[in-house]
């Protein structure tokens, strides 16, 4: 059973949902504090959604310098799975662990809505269990999800109907190696039929399976 650390920053608010959803899929998921130096030997890590450090200065700008980010970077450098959801994606972008940046939504609206995304690349740690072109119904919940990049990123997910003005309809990207993925939609909020969709499960099981495979390696 792979061990997955879910980092809690001051202002994170989706960590319990992520831990619950990962445990429901059989992972040994537990919390890690942002001030810790290590991730307790975890096989993979999730940076959950929320408003780390109040989103002051820029989303993720202060969180990227949290002590735990050294351990997150080490894990990423080892090729282990790193997944950033929403604010976690913003933190990964600020830390340059994935390319690009997230600016305010087109229309200046905070968006808490269901979206449909297509899986563009099944070679990443968050899409391994998906099929290319598969449509997933997963909600977003953000003010700054309008993706911009000064390089061509490796695209993991695109919106079917672009809700926030994101460049090239990008909803999620990975690093070149595919082991660090950031996405704006919240798979943990679509992890059971009772929530309105269970499509996010395939993202979470992709992560768990990636951890399992790298654990064996």
């Amino acid at each position: 059973m792979p061990k997955i650390a879910v980092v809690v920053f001051p202002g994170s608010n989706c960590e319990q949902d992520v831990v619950h959803a990962l445990r429901a899929e059989g992972a040994d998921a537990d919390y890690a504090w942002h001030g810790d130096d290590d991730l307790g030997g975890a096989d993979g890590v999730v940076l959950p959604g929320g408003f780390a450090h109040g989103d002051y200065l820029r989303t993720g700008a202060i969180a990227r310098f949290s002590p735990v980010m050294h351990a997150v970077r080490s894990l990423a450098d080892e090729g282990k799975p790193v997944l950033g959801i929403c604010n976690g994606f913003q933190i990964l972008a600020e830390a340059h662990l994935v390319p690009g940046a997230l600016i305010k939504n087109e229309g200046l609206r905070f968006l808490c809505v269901w979206t449909e995304v297509t899986v563009e690349d099944t070679g990443t740690i968050a899409t391994r269990a998906c099929e290319k072109g598969q449509r997933l119904r997963i909600p977003i919940n953000h003010y700054e999800g309008n993706y911009r990049a000064n390089v061509e990123p490796r695209v993991a997910f695109r919106y079917v109907d672009n809700p926030n003005g994101a460049w090239q309809n990008i909803a999620g990207v990975s690093n070149d190696a595919g082991n660090v993925v950031g996405l704006m939609p919240h798979p943990e909020r679509a992890s059971h039929e009772s929530l309105g969709s269970a499509d996010g499960r395939t993202v979470l099981t992709s992560l768990i399976e990636s951890c399992r495979l790298l654990q064996r390696a």
Partner: peptide, 8 residues
């Protein structure tokens, strides 16, 4: 390094 994000 910090005060600006030079990507944007």
């Amino acid at each position: 390094r910090f005060l600006a994000n030079t990507v944007i």
